[in-house]
Amino acid sequence: MIDFLKSVLGKEKTGSKNLAKERLRLVLVHDRASVSPHLLESLKVDLIQVISNYMEIDEKALDVQLSSDNDSVALVANIPVIKMKRTYQDARAN
């Protein structure tokens, strides 16, 4: 009864706008990535650069994309490793 009164009198703050905002947030992650395909390419180049400090990777087979679940978007990268670098410790020490 109290709930009913609250909803009639507009005290309840669980309107549909939060749903709208959440749906927009998710759809815009994809939209913005596709407006600039450049973005993912540039991310790839940076990833290769950073990872190469630690291991040798197959740059040609590297695959980076956005994948979405119902309520979240993830950056999925598949990066085949050729071999690990032994010099990692040394590089850090210097």
């Binding site: 507009g10 309840e12 703050k13 549909s16 706008k17 939060n18 815009l28």
Partner: peptide, 15 residues
């Protein structure tokens, strides 16, 4: 906006 059924100004600027 008041009853939460429409995005408000802050929501839209945020997005």
């Amino acid at each position: 906006v008041k009853r939460g059924d429409m995005m408000n100004i802050e929501d839209m600027i945020d997005i």
